[in-house]
């Protein structure tokens, strides 16, 4: 799966989560990012897979918030994240690829997931491009909050 790089503020190791008592399981907790408190979402649970565990390879992608995003607005890239800084916990960094806009294909209708935005073909593989805004707005996906 892929995320547009402009949406990412930085990538850090997945350590020192501070759990939030009472919060749904999909929220790993809060971390202190140089004085900013960032909420971390466990992506595994968002895709009905297993929870991402903290390992040597696992990382948190800290996403820019909407204000930061607008400051570096890229004219041909229209993305939104959320009003707050939110991080997503991922298994590992796979690769950095560059994709031409025309290569982005819409998600086939039989693959139905609110977070998927585009599909890109890379050789034999398909890479799913996620939509950060949908993903971060967990309040719209009550089923994930339980």
């Amino acid at each position: 799966m892929g995320l547009p790089i402009p949406a990412i503020l930085e990538i850090g190791r997945s350590i020192n989560f501070h759990p939030v008592r009472g919060a749904p399981e999909i929220i790993d907790g809060l971390i202190n990012l140089r004085g900013k408190v960032v909420t971390i979402i466990n992506t595994g649970l968002a895709f009905e897979a297993e929870k991402v565990k903290s390992t040597d390879e696992s990382r948190v992608y800290i996403l820019k918030n909407n204000t930061e995003l607008r400051e570096v607005a890229d004219a041909d890239f229209d993305i939104e994240t959320s009003p707050d800084n939110i991080g997503i916990h991922v298994d590992r960094i796979a690769d950095v690829i560059s994709v031409e806009n025309e290569d982005l294909q819409t998600v086939p209708a039989n693959i139905n997931h609110p977070f998927y935005k585009h599909v890109v073909r890379r050789g034999e593989e398909f890479i799913i491009i996620l939509e950060p805004q949908k993903m971060l707005n967990l309040n719209e996906h009550q089923e994930l909050l339980s």
Binding site: V20, V37, T39
Partner: peptide, 19 residues
């Protein structure tokens, strides 16, 4: 006190978080 991210805002027993 730093406000909670929106996705946590329904937990009203927290006023926020702090470092």
């Amino acid at each position: 006190v730093k406000p909670l991210a929106q996705i946590l805002s329904k937990f009203s027993y927290y006023a926020g978080s702090s470092i």
